[in-house]
Design a protein around this nucleic acid. Sequence first.
DNA 1: AAGCAATCACCCAAAACGGGTGATTTTAAC
DNA 2: GTTAAAATCACCCGTTTTGGGTGATTGCTT
Lengths: 208, 208
Amino acid sequence: MNKNIRIVIIEDDSVLRMAYKSLLSDVDDYSVVNTYASFDEAKKELINDNPDITLLDIEMPGTTGLEAIPIIKKILPQTHVIILTVFDSEEKVFNALINGASGFLTKNSSSIKIIESIHEVAQGGGAMSMNIARVVMRSFQKNLDSPLTKRETEILDLIAEGQTKTQVADQLFIDLETVRSHVKNIYIKLDVNSKSDAIKIAKTKKFI
Amino acid sequence: MNKNIRIVIIEDDSVLRMAYKSLLSDVDDYSVVNTYASFDEAKKELINDNPDITLLDIEMPGTTGLEAIPIIKKILPQTHVIILTVFDSEEKVFNALINGASGFLTKNSSSIKIIESIHEVAQGGGAMSMNIARVVMRSFQKNLDSPLTKRETEILDLIAEGQTKTQVADQLFIDLETVRSHVKNIYIKLDVNSKSDAIKIAKTKKFI
DNA sequence: AAGCAATCACCCAAAACGGGTGATTTTAAC
DNA sequence: GTTAAAATCACCCGTTTTGGGTGATTGCTT
């Protein structure tokens, strides 16, 4: 029985905290080195705990899980953070991912899923429950009923990357006047009259 | 034994095609209504097949899986496409997601994982193998060693969204001159002298 | 034959941009 | 409690970009 994956659990709900602990302690190569009810409590101890995996509740008193991620990654760059959450709002998911979470599980995940996910993450993989995967994938999907033509979409894409019309023209090997002409049509179709509005509308409607 | 999830398999490798077919046909509520060696072959038949799930190989002769996704979604908007692939380059993953794939499995996925994923996707979820999840998550993670300060990052973020300095100033309730000052510092730190270069560098280095 | 997409042209005034140089205040770290 | 870094604002300059109007040509698709 070799325990080589060191796990820390930070979860304010004591029932859940204990449940996770007993679940994971029973796995052969898992070792729950410590559990905490808040990040503020865990903060100073984490360096000694030196976890490979940190299970982190996103809703907590004091420092929230979201705020805690970058701090944890700062003091323990090699640890993998797995977020536990009840809800899965798009904003929270992306903030967690941006801050450096390696996994994202909703609390309705089965015991098996949790154990599996820790293995995957410890091996350098990513873990997402199906709810989260759905949110992430949806965020990528473009609207297939865009009013913009292929060329217009291409041009708006480049503009959304911060390029000027002149740069777009150079990159596409067309005249500046042509780009201007396309942009005018884009503005009419999207009913806007500026770059930023066009980008905003096109992004919210998933045209780009 | 009620077969209610209709599945179509499009995969040019006949061995794999048959393997998937027999694997999935044995599942109680799955019904493999047809299999094809290429999308061009499948194209006209898909309307009659009316699959709930389409398993699609990404590397195929003729129309590639990537090109096929939007066409499939066009003629069968309600079908869920699950991509099968050997490799998992970031570009392919994102193109598939953008085009409307609901799932993404590498071919080393276990039989159980495949069966599970189809269930999840059929229920409206998303499915990703751990390799893919890792790629997706990595793409989100920002560089924690950015030379930019919090405010500078915030401002560059807004500029990258297409806003002008004036709009940024209004939004952050600070003076235009302050924004200009920050932007100047950003340009120095990133060693650039234009919006588009700053955005480009900051994005490739994951500062924003 | 008609319509749409993509291409280029010229006019105009307003807005935004990039660079320089400098100052003050607030915040954070040692 | 000092000191450094971050955030704030100010005014100079000339150049580039932007948005709007109006119109034309070519090619593809239906």
